[in-house]
Amino acid sequence: MAFLINIKRVSRAGFIGFLRNGFVSLTTVLIMAIVLFVMGALMMGGAALDATLVQLQEKVDINVYFLTDAPESDILALRDLVSELPEVANVEYVSRDEALAQFRERNKDDQLTLQALDELDENPLGASLAIRAKETSQYEGIAGFLENETAVGGGAQIIEKINYFQNKAAINKLTSIIDTSERFGLIVTIFLITVSALIVFNTIRLAIFTTKEEIGVMQLVGASDWYVQGPFIIEGSLYGFAGALLALLALYPVSLSLGPASQAFLGSFNVLSYYANNIGWLFFILVATGVGLGALSSFIAVRRYLRLTN
């Protein structure tokens, strides 16, 4: 009972302090909002980067072209074998007829080529397998497997060529770009979050510095440590909460204005729809970070001024 009354008194004092220290609260909330805005923007930027990388990865595959006289049953057997590899995301079989249809579609404006094709008695195109790996770095292994398989498979040679060996340089480059951008993104994020935490901590420390005399007075009157700290921790949490709301609000017009541009530039990723779809998650992360950072900063800052300790 006494505990509940104390909780109530401490919370009330925190709210009153937040309201009465109007100017200090306002500046602290604004700084908190800027920091959390940067964090929210980083999250959205990270999501854009991820989406773009996934999209790029999806564009990469290796194609296995078969000889025109390769029996379809052998090709399908190889397809089943390959699709059981753990690295393989999916395998798409393009039959000879489908290949011809695709070729016609691609060259539908080129009468000369189509005429030349019609001159031929039979379909000059072979069947192919389009193989997509889960990670770009795994293509080398898959290509190696196919090489071995055709060598060991003995019997008739059915594979004409595997285009991995032509695309190898491009795939390796993409793999290293993905690795680098993920690592770089992580470093930048950690750096910015550290800087943000320090800015928030320092702001709250300055806000509390002005009341350090009063902290001593509260102790002299016989208030226990946590009774002195409590209201400041509530105030710090309120800074964080208000800052997070402001940051979330500020991210809306930014997403709105960048939405079409991001769609045009990145293809599948639209900042605005990401914001709309993940608003609950963004809210949770920003509020949790803001409140946590505010409360912790206040706790540490006040503790320094609890001087009447023996």
Partner: peptide, 8 residues
């Protein structure tokens, strides 16, 4: 009141 509140 603070002095009384602090004293519970």
């Amino acid at each position: 009141a603070f002095a009384m509140e602090a004293a519970g």
